[in-house]
Design a protein around this nucleic acid. Structure first.
Length: 473
RNA sequence: GUCCCCAUCGUCUAGCCUGGUCAGGACAAGAGCCUUUCGAGCUCUCGGCAGGGGUUCAAAUCCCCUUGGGGACGCCA
């Protein structure tokens, strides 16, 4: 049984990079019929915030990424918050110490700082030199007396390690050069990320770890730690990183690529997922637009590529537009209305808005373009070009239109056809010089959706009001 | 600095493993068609194997070097 997990730390909002990791884990679990676990890695009590914790779950759910085990839903391997598992980490640490695989280390931060500076100056790798291993009893007593408190370090004994990465293939490390004994328990007794992640992955029987490439060089640590604690290490796959539009690496501070920002801009969750999946993964065919269920079937870890990619908002917008067009009129209206309400930008009668919304379906790429378009519902809109409706010909046309309004019987788009057919013989102007003034009188804008679609939605009463208003403008 | 990863149009990518099809698609850009408007849609154009060495009859594909980019080197995750 495949068991994967997404283990974010609640220290910022989810952005395109994090959420892709979550998505790939989720998709992989779905594809393999496995379980997707959400685990909150809040070992850094200082920086972890409840606000981020809540936000991250909300964002995941909004995306359609649901976890089989984790906070709220529970599961057989809980608790799923690292902060509630401190005693477990303590227990594993004690065992490692008893077995001589870890030790209390009384080296101070100042000493380590000096050591690394020196190493750098001498062009040696700045790794911990394991000096804490060999302190005599007397030395330790002396340091304790000075008030120095110990950390617990895990002993690195292996000079080399080779892993088989699910995405990168064979990767070998020269541990002698890069890795010294590392801290698993801080002075204050709290676990470091390395300890927590290994104990949790081990205990939760995680089979595949799909994470960002920034963890690639942590992998030897994790494998060694896992093995020392008697766990069989999972298989690892490291996803290359995503860069922002300017080519800069993504950080937690980049609000412009946060899930919340996309939501605010009116991107459909499944369109976002579709776009993000395409960043680093390809189906191997020319298909680019995937419905949510389709994506779950098509995803394949073997087709994930190794190189970093750059986020492109234009393509995201395009993907979103494609998803909008795939929606039925009713679904489009439903989603759009929900968006307008959620973002608190619904300024007109809900029934009327609901009726007119489908008119824009083929026109927009994002929902945040809607409020501006909906301005045509405003009765006191300003005319984008007033001179268009002030000519004698225009006024004559409006008069004629008004006079035939009461005789119209049609419905839907046929209503407009009927209107046009009756209007044409009564006026001198035709073509553009008839329709532009009409559009201006009815919507206040030079451009917009087709009049035959707007006309029936406005209804004869509103059309009448607007023609009368144009006449007096 | 040390270790590790990566490298195809401006961007996302297919092709690479198992050398041989004008290096294919998409976004963007430009042009046109269509639509009595804009957009959407349709058609076309522009544009790329980072560089250098090998191996081979043949290299985007295999090997090496260089260059460039990224990551790690935390009592952050």
């Amino acid at each position: 049984m495949v068991r994967v997990r997404f283990a974010p730390s609640p220290t910022g909002f989810l952005h395109i990079g994090n959420v892709r990791t979550a998505l790939f884990n989720f998709l992989y679990a779905k594809k393999e019929g496995g379980k997707f676990i959400l685990r909150i890695e809040d070992t850094d009590v200082e920086r972890s915030k409840q606000e981020y914790h809540d936000a991250l779950m909300e964002d995941l759910l909004w995306m359609g990424i649901r976890w089989d085990e984790g906070p709220e839903v529970g599961g057989a391997y809980g608790p799923y918050l690292a902060s509630e598992r401190f005693s477990i980490y303590q227990q594993y640490t004690n065992e490692l110490i008893q077995q001589g695989k870890a030790y209390h280390c009384y080296v101070t931060e100042e000493e380590i700082g000096e050591m690394k500076q020196l190493a750098r100056a001498e062009k040696r790798p700045p790794r911990f030199d394991n000096r804490g291993r060999d302190f005599t009893k007397a030395e330790i007593e002396r340091r304790k007396a000075q008030g120095i408190r110990s950390t617990v370090r895990f002993k690195i004994e292996n000079p080399n390690l080779e892993i088989h990465d699910l995405i990168r293939g064979k990767v070998s490390f020269n541990l002698d050069e890069m890795l010294g004994d590392f801290i698993i328990l801080r002075q204050d007794g709290s676990p470091t990320f390395h300890l927590a992640v290994c104990v949790d992955d081990g205990l939760m029987q995680v089979t595949h770890v799909i994470r960002g490439e920034d963890h690639l060089s942590n992998t030897p640590k994790h494998i060694l730690l896992l093995e020392a604690m008697g766990f069989k290490p999972p298989q690892y796959g490291h996803l290359s990183l995503i860069h922002g539009e300017g080519g800069e690496p993504l950080s937690k501070r980049l609000e412009s690529v946060s899930v919340r920002e996309f939501r605010r801009r009116g991107i459909l969750p499944h369109a976002l997922a579709n776009y993000i999946a395409l960043l680093g993964w390809s189906p191997g065919t020319n298909q680019e637009i995937f419905q949510w269920e389709e994506l779950q079937k098509a995803f394949d870890l073997a087709q994930v590529n190794k190189h970093a990619s750059t986020y492109d908002s234009k393509k995201l917008d395009w993907v979103n537009g494609q998803h909008l067009r795939l929606l039925s009129d009713e679904d489009f209206a439903k989603h759009a209305l929900a968006y307008l309400k959620e973002q608190k930008v619904l300024r007109f009668d809900e029934t009327l808005v609901h009726k007119i919304l489908p008119v824009f379906k083929d026109n927009i790429e994002r929902f945040d373009q809607l409020p501006e378009r909906l301005e045509i519902l405003r009765d006191d809109f300003a005319y984008e070009n007033k001179s268009l409706i002030q000519t004698a010909e225009a006024k004559e046309a409006f008069q004629a239109a008004l006079s035939l309004l009461p005789h119209l019987r049609g419905n839907g788009e046929a209503l407009f056809d009927e209107f046009v057919n009756q209007l044409k013989p009564k006026v001198k102007v035709k073509g553009k010089s008839l329709f532009m003034p009409l559009r201006m009188a009815l919507t206040g804008k030079k451009h917009g959706p087709e009049l035959k679609r707007i006309f029936p939605v406005l209804g004869l009463d509103l059309v009448k009001k607007r023609l009368e208003r144009a006449l007096n403008a």
